[in-house]
Nucleic acid binder design. Structure first.
Lengths: 227, 227
DNA sequence: TACGCCACGATTGGATCCAATCCAAGCGAA
DNA sequence: TTCGCTTGGATTGGATCCAATCGTGGCGTA
């Protein structure tokens, strides 16, 4: 073993297969490839100006992320969730996101609080679902952004990604009361974070996710048939 | 979109690239490729009787699992953990394994309890570290085996895999008292599970992982230099 | 002697080509 | 008409080949 065989250098990217993976991830998130739709290697290769080899590498990585389901000698599909599976993701988030928030909270800066506040306010003001979803994701990801973690941050982001295609559907199911409570929770979280009340922030995010889970468990129709 | 484009079939395997991935996973777990060691595509390809293409696909998947670190145009290394990163994995397990156990507990059968009991007893009896590690893994995985989950089970298994190379090192650091407590916890868990006390079992596994995390945080020397 | 540049070997990344597999349509028989 | 078989096209899986990149050793110069 030569001296360079030990000590892995820092990660880098710009690779073609990584770009393809990122592109597919993005396309799924934007609803371009809905859950259950098939992903043909050649079509993707052409779309991203690459050959099928990096496409296959990307699909393998996305499979490990849970976004894509591969079947040997048959093809790749965007993963589809049942209601029970979606609830499982939310139960998992309920456990992990408070922990992640704890890692991040202590390192958040005043400018972050202001931005969080602005996002919470903007969310309460908008009537556009797409806009709301974008703001909501930015809000929560910003709250986690100062966490210096190896895998926990990525893990949580993956959980968001797998449920992303369904979020639009059940967001529209919330009535006025439920929405107000959700906005209140967002504001509560900003206050707790600003005051350095990590425990309070943890409880708030846990309740927030729990509430969402209970909301979607009352609406199985979102997951039936071709979602 | 033709009719066959929707509805992904059930997963299957037997693929070459999956076999390579499984093989590498196994080799890492058995200490054949220690953390920080380099993985050359051609060597792996030759070892598993395949070309470099499926090897690259396998490496991409293992990277997404966190077992391997890829650097563009440079190579692949077995992921190496710092003490802080290992603690992060344990904190994550502390949150997830109780949840997973809850999913599994209700479906465990009498034969499972007997096997768990036997494993706990065997663990307390053996002096061989390798034997202990094998029994310990089987014990905990069996306790989770009846969980019908989409990703939570796989997730937990991945967390075990990433820390596997270090487990041997810090297992040997436990003094007699610590070991006795760990064995007590194993037996406690079997009792709780047998009695259908899911809450008790959850608390026990959480405390069990927590205790291990605190043990290893007292031994940073395991992670320094060439682990 | 120490530093920097250059060139070569080794390794990874990507593209094309060929084999294996699967799906579906069409044919034939009951 | 319906079921089952067969065949052909489409798609995936794998291997080989070529290009791009990186690390290293050697050379020259200050």
């Amino acid at each position: 073993m030569t001296p360079t065989d030990l000590q892995a250098p820092v990660a880098r990217d710009g690779n073609a297969s990584s770009r393809v993976a990122a592109g597919i991830r993005d396309a799924i998130a934007h609803g371009e490839y809905p859950p259950g739709s098939r992903l043909r290697q050649e079509e993707i290769a052409e779309r991203f100006g690459a050959s099928r080899v990096p496409v296959r590498e990307a699909l393998k990585a996305l499979e490990a992320e849970g976004l894509v389901t591969l079947v040997a000698n048959t093809g790749a599909w965007v993963s589809r969730l049942t209601l029970a599976e979606c609830e499982e993701v939310y139960q998992t988030r309920e456990r992990l996101e408070p922990l992640l928030l704890r890692h991040s909270a202590a390192h958040l800066e005043p400018a972050d609080f202001d931005r969080l506040e602005a996002l919470a306010t903007a969310m309460a003001a908008t009537d556009d679902v797409g806009e709301f979803l974008r703001l909501d994701r930015e809000f929560h990801m910003l709250s986690y952004s100062r966490a210096d973690t190896l895998m926990l941050g990525d893990l949580v982001e993956r959980l968001w990604n797998t449920t992303q295609p369904y979020r639009r559907a059940y967001t529209m199911l919330a009535d006025a009361d439920t929405r107000r409570i959700m906005h209140d929770e967002h504001h509560l979280m900003v206050v707790a974070l600003r005051e350095g009340d990590v425990e309070g922030a943890e409880r708030t995010i846990e309740g927030h996710i729990r509430r969402t889970r209970r909301l979607l468990s009352r609406h199985p129709e979102v997951f039936s048939a071709n979602g």
